[in-house]
C-alpha cells in the first residue's frame, strides 16, 4: 500500500476527529495570520454548538479588530460603540433572561474607554459572559499603547517603550474585577497550544453554564498575541507572550464561586 493510498483510506467520515463547527461561518476572517481572535472565535462557536444554544445566544461585538466578529459566528449579534458592550449586554440579558448573552472585547475597548461599563456590569453581577482578549496593544488603529501594554513595551504611541512613571502601570483587569462581589467566575487563559485551547474551551463552557444557572457574571480573560502590532512573526509572538506577558498576567482561575 502506498503512502497516498493509506492517507486516502484514513480520510473518511468515520475517522473524522476534528472539523470546523457549523456555528462558524465560511467567511474568511479578516484577522492577520496567527491572530488569537480566530482561535477564540472558534472555541466560542464550538461551545455554542456543543451546548445547543445557537438560537438562544446573542453576542455583543466591540470596536477594535474584533468589531467584525459578527461576520464569523452564525448567531444574532449586536455591534456596540467603543467600550459599551457590557451596557448593551446588561439590557439584553435583563430583558431576555432565558438567553445567553456574551460580550467580546479587546483591551483598548474594555480596559480603557469601557472601564466604567465593565466595572459596573461586573459589580451588578449581570448574568452574562465577558470574553476579554488582552494582547497589550490597540490592533485595529495600528498598534498604539493600551492600558495593558507592558512596562517598556514599544508601541506606536510609546515609541521609546511604555514609561509607567507617566502612563501608569499595566492594568490587571481580572484581578480588579475578581474583587467585586458580582463576579462569579474570573479566569485568565491563553490559546497558544492545543492544551491551552482545551482549557480555554472548558472555561468558556463554564461561563455559558453559569449563565444557564443564572449565577451572574463570568469574566474570561485570554492573553493573546498581536503579531502585526508587536512586529513579530506569529510563532515569535507566542514566545514573546510566554516570556513577557505570562509573568505579569499569570494564567489561572482567580475566582470560581
Amino acid at each position: 500500500m502506498t503512502a497516498t493510498t493509506e492517507i486516502n483510506n484514513i480520510i473518511s467520515e468515520e475517522n473524522l476527529v476534528y472539523k470546523k463547527t457549523s456555528v462558524l461561518l465560511d467567511n474568511e476572517m479578516h484577522y492577520c495570520p496567527g491572530c488569537t481572535h480566530g482561535v477564540i472565535h472558534k472555541v466560542i462557536a464550538e461551545v455554542i454548538e456543543e451546548m445547543d444554544i445557537q438560537d438562544k445566544t446573542i453576542g455583543v461585538s466591540p470596536v477594535g479588530c474584533s468589531v467584525l466578529a459578527y461576520n464569523y459566528l452564525d448567531i444574532d449579534w449586536q455591534q456596540a460603540a467603543h467600550g459599551r458592550a457590557p451596557a448593551l449586554a446588561t439590557a439584553t440579558a435583563r430583558l431576555m433572561p432565558d438567553k445567553y448573552v456574551f460580550t467580546y472585547q479587546g483591551d483598548g475597548d474594555l480596559a480603557s474607554i469601557g472601564c466604567a461599563e465593565i466595572i459596573h456590569a461586573c459589580n451588578r453581577g449581570e448574568n452574562i459572559v465577558v470574553v476579554f482578549v488582552n494582547n497589550a496593544i490597540y490592533g485595529m488603529t495600528g498598534g498604539q499603547m493600551a492600558p495593558t501594554t507592558l512596562d517598556g513595551q514599544v508601541t506606536a504611541t510609546s515609541p521609546y517603550g511604555r514609561d509607567c512613571g507617566s502612563t501608569g502601570a499595566p492594568m490587571k483587569i481580572s484581578e480588579m474585577v475578581s474583587l467585586l462581589p458580582g463576579t462569579r467566575f474570573v479566569t485568565r487563559q491563553s490559546a497558544e497550544t492545543a492544551g491551552a485551547v482545551r482549557k480555554l474551551k472548558k472555561a468558556i463552557r463554564k461561563g455559558f453554564e453559569n449563565t444557564r444557572e443564572k449565577k451572574g457574571l463570568s469574566f474570561i480573560e485570554i492573553v493573546g498575541t498581536c503579531s502585526s502590532g508587536w512586529k513579530l512573526s506569529p510563532t515569535q509572538s507566542n514566545e514573546w507572550m510566554k516570556e513577557n506577558m505570562f509573568p505579569y498576567y499569570p494564567l489561572g482561575t482567580l475566582k470560581d464561586e
Partner: peptide, 26 residues
C-alpha cells in the same frame, strides 16, 4: 418592565441600544 439606574448617561443610552436591538420598547 425593567427599570435600571445605570452608572452614567453613556451606559444608559447604550443599554437602550441593547434593549432596542432585541425588538423591545425601551
Amino acid at each position: 418592565m425593567v427599570v435600571l439606574q445605570a452608572e452614567s448617561e453613556v451606559a444608559a443610552i447604550n443599554m437602550v441600544y441593547g434593549g432596542a436591538s432585541c425588538g423591545k420598547k425601551v
